[in-house]
């Protein structure tokens, strides 16, 4: 606790950075299409955390104000849409190829 001092925007950014990097690594290493999707969710969540931290009135005087929360809201909503579409694509791929391994998704017009 003493090591941390007061919680500042930087600490939130650090957590956001960890989420972002783990998400990016997930996207890079997972072979399951749904695993890649989970990586995307992590990345978006890391970005969200940054938006909220910059907009937080409790952390900093010259904050973004409502813009931070609003951007986070839009990100959440659009992430829901993105997940629905990506899931539909993944299921379609699974139906056509009987596989969810994205390494096998290498032909067009499949």
């Amino acid at each position: 606790m003493a090591l941390l001092g007061t919680v500042t925007v930087s600490h939130y950014l650090a957590v956001g950075a960890v989420l972002f990097v783990t998400g990016a690594l997930c996207m890079a290493t997972k072979r399951n299409a749904l695993g890649v999707l989970m990586g995307i969710e992590l990345v978006l969540n890391g970005a969200n955390l940054n938006f909220v931290a910059f907009g937080s009135e409790l952390l900093r005087k010259d904050n973004l104000g409502l813009d931070g929360s609003l951007m986070a809201l839009f990100v959440i909503v659009l992430a829901a849409g993105e997940a629905a579409v990506a899931l539909a694509i993944a299921l379609n791929f699974y139906n056509n190829h009987m596989s969810i391994d994205i390494d096998q998704a290498d032909d067009l017009k499949g």
């Binding site: 969200n48 955390l49 909220v52 907009g55 952390l59 931070g68 929360s69 986070a72 959440i76």
Partner: peptide, 10 residues
């Protein structure tokens, strides 16, 4: 964390 940052709605 969002709750902690005061963004309850988010």
């Amino acid at each position: 964390l969002f709750f902690l940052a005061g963004a309850e709605f988010v």
